[in-house]
Amino acid sequence: MTRAIGIAVPDVPPGVATSQAPSDTRSDENLLGAMALNDEGAAIALIRRYQRRLFGLALGIVSDPSLAEEIAQEALIRVWKHAPVYDVRRGSVTTWVLTITRNLSIDALRMRRSIPVEPDDLIALGLASREPDPEDAAELSDASGRVHRALQTIPPEQRQALLLSAYYGLTAEEISERESIPLGTAKTRIRAALIKVRAALAPIDEEDLVQMKEQGRDE
């Protein structure tokens, strides 16, 4: 769900469009293409589509609302700036914008040399409030659910190592120091955890699906 944010006309700088449709059904890729042609309406539509996710991700990592806003805005400015050269072959728009935000957040965090939120708290908070995009709600919620379930089954020490690296950009060496474990153990924990997440995303085998349906009919 996209929260409607009113634009106070007196505050809007000259030349900035203010009239927008409440929702834009164009795909992310189409919006980026239009942004490259200076379609400000497309830019605003993309901003509205992503601002909650980007701000939420940044806030989850840096735990400072004003810094998180700065990060989310910088991420969106960069997306706007690089829209003309976005290459769909490099991955989805969602992945692209989230990665930009995550990297900016990590940069900010490294300057502070601290981790304000425990990784498990971040995930717990996120899953409690996660609202999938309407466009791909079924697929996304399914994938998110499977990843979430996988995370819950991963041994806590592996999950901790994975989340520290994914969300806070900690290297294996930094995790080894933080957790007081050998470097090799840190590497193994990260890899083992990500393998389990990857397995959760693997498509269900067609034969397994048929078997599951048949079992369902039998019961």
């Binding site: 908070l125 979430h148 994914a166």
Partner: peptide, 25 residues
């Protein structure tokens, strides 16, 4: 990428969009 998609959503502070557009302008 799937892990990033689990990140929490949150409402940005009021005026976020206006400030962003002002910054761009």
């Amino acid at each position: 990428d799937a892990l990033f998609q689990l990140a929490p959503e949150a409402d940005p502070p009021a005026g976020f969009e206006v400030r962003l557009l002002a910054r761009r302008a």
